[in-house]
């Protein structure tokens, strides 16, 4: 077995002490999961099946997914433990092996993101961080106050131009390939989740037809999957 002589070591990243508050509750993971699922190459996420919800989290922990997304890379990194392939043997000059895989575990939420396909550790770390951001947007739900609801600017930016609530100064529509899509996607998921998965109710609040909002949701696979997770949990049919 290829990986039999490797272990994941959960090394705290140098210079970035993780602020693990003893009373923060986070999900426990089956660490052997990764070994059974080998198709690591290419982009992939480590989804875990747990829902992260402010109500279920310890009150002392910062549990606002919006706050995670506005953190700089370095600040976000401080909330993570970094695991790397622990090379058997002395490493350094002794070895020629590109075991530059990086796994980040976001301590407050327990979300894990990993990158292995890049050729340097540095790049794998950036890729893993980018994936972590996407996962935070997809997985961490924040309640939305529906009274006097007006969509936040990050959400308006990802809406199609025909939305009646979208002011012209929002500029062109931001698509899934833009990093600014993530906060918008998060705000959209928060709203859909608060409205119990109803696309039509959400569309009304966003000044869109149900069809137009569905098209937006279906334009990104990760978003579609996250919306369908919400809908299934509410007993609704998935969007196709």
């Amino acid at each position: 077995m290829a990986n039999a002589n490797m272990l994941w070591s959960s090394a705290k990243i140098l210079g970035f002490p993780s602020p693990i508050a003893s009373n923060v509750r986070w999900a426990r993971f089956d660490y052997t999961f990764r070994l059974r699922h080998r198709p690591f190459e290419g982009s992939f996420f480590f989804f875990n099946s747990l829902r992260f919800n402010c109500s279920s989290s310890n009150a002392n922990s910062v549990c606002n997914g919006k706050q995670y997304l506005v953190l700089s890379d370095e600040e976000l990194m401080k909330q993570c433990e970094m695991g790397t392939f622990k090379a058997s043997g002395p490493g350094g000059q002794h070895r020629n092996k590109r075991e530059s895989a990086v796994r980040l575990k976001h301590i407050p939420t327990g979300i894990i993101a990993q990158a292995v396909e890049d050729r340097s550790q540095h790049k794998n770390r950036s890729s893993a961080l980018a994936r972590l951001r996407a996962l935070l947007a997809l997985k961490v739900r924040n309640p939305v106050d529906l009274e006097d609801y007006s969509p936040p600017p990050e959400l308006l930016q990802i809406l199609p131009l025909k939305s009646t609530v979208r002011p012209p100064e929002c500029g062109p529509q931001i698509g899934p390939n833009n990093s600014k899509f993530l906060p918008g996607m998060q705000a959209l998921l928060d709203l859909i989740s608060t409205l119990d998965g109803s696309v039509s109710d959400t569309a009304k609040l966003l000044g869109l037809t149900t069809g137009a909002l569905s098209r937006l949701i279906l334009s990104d696979d990760a978003l579609r999957m996250a919306v369908n997770d919400i809908r299934m949990s509410k007993g609704l049919k998935p969007l196709k």
Partner: peptide, 29 residues
């Protein structure tokens, strides 16, 4: 492998390497 392709990806750099030159290691990043 790095001598075969004549380079090594190291940090955000792609460095030329060849026989006679140590291949930079990930640790050194």
């Amino acid at each position: 492998f790095q001598y075969i392709v004549g380079c090594e990806h190291w940090r955000d750099l792609i460095l030329s390497v060849e026989e006679g030159v140590l291949i930079p290691r990930p640790e050194t990043e």
